[in-house]
Amino acid sequence: MVLVNGARQAGKSTLTRLTAARRRDPVLRLLDDAATLRAAMDDPTGFVEHDSMMLIDEIQLAPELLRAIKVAVDLDPTPGRFLLTGSSRILAMRTLPDALPGRMEVIELWPFSQGEISGGPDRFVDAAFTHGPGLSCTSALRKRDYLDRAVVGGFPEAVKRTPRRRTAFFNAYLSTLVERDVLELASIERHGEILKLLGLLAGRTGGLLVPAALATASGIPRTTLVRYLELLTSVFLIKTIPAWTSGLTGRTVGTGKLAFVDTGIACHLTGQDAARLAEPDGAAGAMLENFVVMELARQLTWSEQQGRLFHYRTKDKVEVDAVIETPRGDVIGIEVKAGATVRTEDLSGLRNLANLLGDRFVAGYVLYTGQQTLPFGDRIRALPMDALWQLSP
């Protein structure tokens, strides 16, 4: 069986229905329908009996179906019989039966990438490892254009709405997420604490995720706060970018960094539109860093080059916003700058990483809001930010 898992409103139902429509006589089960859900809960075994592909939408609403599906798959292991969708991490559910190992492939569906929105190839990761410092591009976009994109985010419904209607969508989205999806994973009585925490997290986008500091700032006990962070991760709202270390130095910081899966949600929570972000005390730097990091995370789900995403920071506060390492140990570093110029000090983290890794360091890139490609010595280049979705190998 295949599970398409991801954030609510990311397009899972649309994608899986298009996929099922290509099969002969597919069976469609929508668990959002009360009568269908009741049938699933009353007779799980009978519910999953079928002769063709069965699509079950929102499987987390009736996790008891997974045990019945397990039995059906054990009796007939033909691939492609079950296509499932879920809006929370199924493995995190309290009521999950032990039915998944070895029987399910999980595909995470993210909100739209910028390449999907603009029609670009979305192959920066592959291009970076293929061509190294040989990458080059020009851009017509400026800082305000990137901020506009960050504010919109990637949810299909948000992309097609006007700013006023987009605000209504985000309000409803967050309300549903807390009142429904989070409650599917855990019993939470004080919903207001979750919403308070979300606002606090949005103001710390791109910062180190230190539970003790967050507990102090929010007034939420540390153990409760850690539980809340796990829940927000499970409903695909936030993501922790782990710290990278080569094992060659003891001066790296092991704390993960906070990122919102969608910058539109983060901007909404901070109450900043593109104009406000661009002001001197606005959050342009943090939001554009989040924007770039999550575009990289999306690309790593389909790129030919396998890799893992990290951030790099030493105890001396030398840092690189994003580090991608391949299974063979090759590394690229990406620094994000909201400005249209690149200064020498902007390169310190990449140069530190290059010196540390030697030949394992493929290239370092400063993604900035300028319009030209600029060389900065051995294996380091500044590229316009839209190189993320415009370049291909």
Rank of each mutant, 00 (worst) to 15 (best):
R343N: 09
V318N: 00
L15Y: 12
R164Q: 09
S175T: 14
A213Y: 09
F376A: 12
L135T: 07
D316M: 08
W389F: 07
D76W: 05
G102D: 11
R22G: 10
P242H: 02
S139M: 07
G6N: 07
F260C: 00
I265V: 15
K196T: 11
E157K: 14
G115H: 01
R67I: 02
F310D: 00
A382L: 11
L31K: 06
R313H: 05
P26V: 10
S303T: 08
V320Q: 04
M104V: 15
D51Q: 14
D145V: 13
V210Q: 11
I107W: 07
R251I: 04
S246Q: 02
P44Y: 08
G339I: 03
V182N: 00
G264H: 01
T216S: 10
E64C: 06
E279M: 14
E184A: 14
N171C: 04
S87F: 12
T373A: 06
T85H: 08
P121Y: 08
A275L: 11
L183F: 02
T16I: 14
Q272D: 03
V152L: 09
P375M: 04
E319V: 02
M54V: 10
F376N: 07
L201G: 02
L347Y: 07
E335K: 12
Q299G: 03
L141G: 03
H50Q: 15
L214R: 06
M287P: 00
G264N: 03
L96S: 07
R298H: 09
P280F: 05
V4R: 12
N352S: 15
A274S: 15
G119R: 13
G264C: 06
L357G: 07
R144S: 09
D262V: 08
L269W: 08
K160N: 06
V261N: 03
C137N: 04
T223V: 14
A354N: 03
F170N: 02
T78I: 09
I380S: 01
G206D: 06
L100T: 14
T270A: 02
A68M: 10
L18N: 13
T263G: 08
G329F: 12
L277R: 01
I334H: 10
Y365R: 03
F376R: 03
T14K: 04
G132V: 10
V235W: 01
T233N: 10
V182A: 01
L141P: 04
M385I: 01
D262H: 09
E49D: 11
E49Q: 13
E49T: 11
A382D: 10
A202S: 06
M41F: 01
V331Y: 05
L177S: 01
Q305R: 15
P77W: 08
L91V: 12
D316P: 00
A127L: 11
G11A: 11
G207N: 15
T341Y: 06
K70S: 14
T223W: 03
D42G: 00
V323C: 05
L66Y: 11
V152K: 12
V342W: 13
T224D: 04
L258H: 02
E49C: 05
